[in-house]
């Protein structure tokens, strides 16, 4: 009898564990939106608090930006950058960068954004790159010149995809924007915003764009965010089969080329040496992969004149 009881308890325990496990899986799916928001660092705990306060004030929370919101923020950010830098009008080169970049994005942790990942070369000697929220990625000719082959270009693009995937751009938005937006849009859920509301939301949009531009152009991401983007780049490169040590080659070349007059990049990024030190351990064991020669040849063909 005692044995039977023990067996019964065991079976019930197993079933209970199964049920709990099932529940966790379901919960993972159910909480996905929130998980992504948290995982991508869209909001910090402090910002979440602000949102709560805003929600109390307005009666309706403005919890987080949807991928569509992110898309419109990203478009405006990209337009602002393209007002400071000229586009590099070379269809072949831009197509090739998209071929490498969009292929990498599909292997990232966030392959789906509202309107996909798109890449464009900026006609500038400055060594720089910008990842606008939603996946609009701009890379200067100067930065591409730090790449000696396709694997190195993949390292640059995968790093920028890493910033998008980790929500670093959106993370620059001040908590107060969420609170203000909650107050405006939370109270009235009409299909379109009325005149007064439109003006208020437009003002918050200006502030939001300003927050992100400030980070992209003036202050830069936090060093920890740059290192995280490097780590993400290594993961993405490994998934697709690029040689992750190309990131090292690229950073070394960048270190050589970044002089004291290197423009905004030197100011907004940790030094290539520091990045190398941080990412170094995850590159251990990676060496030249097969067909690097084939990839180098098509890189050189597409990038003639860069």
């Amino acid at each position: 009898m005692r044995q039977l009881l023990a067996a019964f308890v065991m079976v019930v325990t197993i079933l209970f564990l199964l049920a709990v496990q099932g529940c966790q899986t379901v919960g993972t799916v159910a909480g996905l939106g929130a998980d992504i928001a948290a995982a991508t660092g869209k909001i910090s705990a402090k910002e979440a608090e602000s949102i709560k306060r805003g929600a109390q004030a307005a009666g309706q929370a403005f919890e987080e930006f949807t991928p569509e919101n992110e898309y419109y923020i990203g478009r405006t950010i990209a337009a602002n950058i393209l007002s400071r830098y000229k586009a590099y009008e070379n269809n072949r080169a831009n197509y090739y960068v998209n071929l490498v970049g969009q292929t990498l994005a599909m292997a990232s942790d966030k392959p789906e954004t509202f309107s996909g990942y798109h890449f464009l070369i900026l006609d500038s000697d400055e060594i720089n790159a910008f990842a606008a929220p939603g996946g609009l990625i701009l890379v200067t000719r100067g930065l591409i010149r730090c790449c000696r082959d396709e694997d190195a270009l993949a390292a640059v693009l995968a790093h920028e995809i890493g910033h998008v995937q980790l929500g670093h751009g959106m993370g620059a938005i001040r908590g107060a924007r969420y609170t203000s937006l909650g107050k405006v849009v939370g109270v009235e859920l009409a299909k379109n915003l009325g005149g007064g509301q439109l003006a208020q939301v437009a003002e918050i949009f200006d502030g939001t764009v300003g927050d992100i531009m400030k980070q992209l152009v003036d202050t830069g991401y936090q060093s920890s965010q740059e290192y995280a983007a490097d780590q993400a780049a290594v993961v993405i490169m490994k998934r697709v089969g690029y040689n992750p040590s190309a990131l090292k080659d690229m950073l070394e070349e960048m270190g050589k080329r970044l002089g004291p007059k290197s423009g905004g990049f030197g100011k907004t990024h940790p030094s290539p040496a520091n990045r190398l030190q941080k990412v170094g351990s995850s590159l251990a064991g990676s060496g030249p992969t097969v067909a690097a020669g084939i990839r180098k040849a098509r890189f050189e063909q597409a990038m003639t004149g860069i």
Partner: peptide, 14 residues
């Protein structure tokens, strides 16, 4: 409420 945030309407205005 987030859907009411930044939309095509806001870009047009911007």
């Amino acid at each position: 409420a987030a859907e009411k945030g930044f939309t095509e309407q806001i870009e047009k205005d911007y």
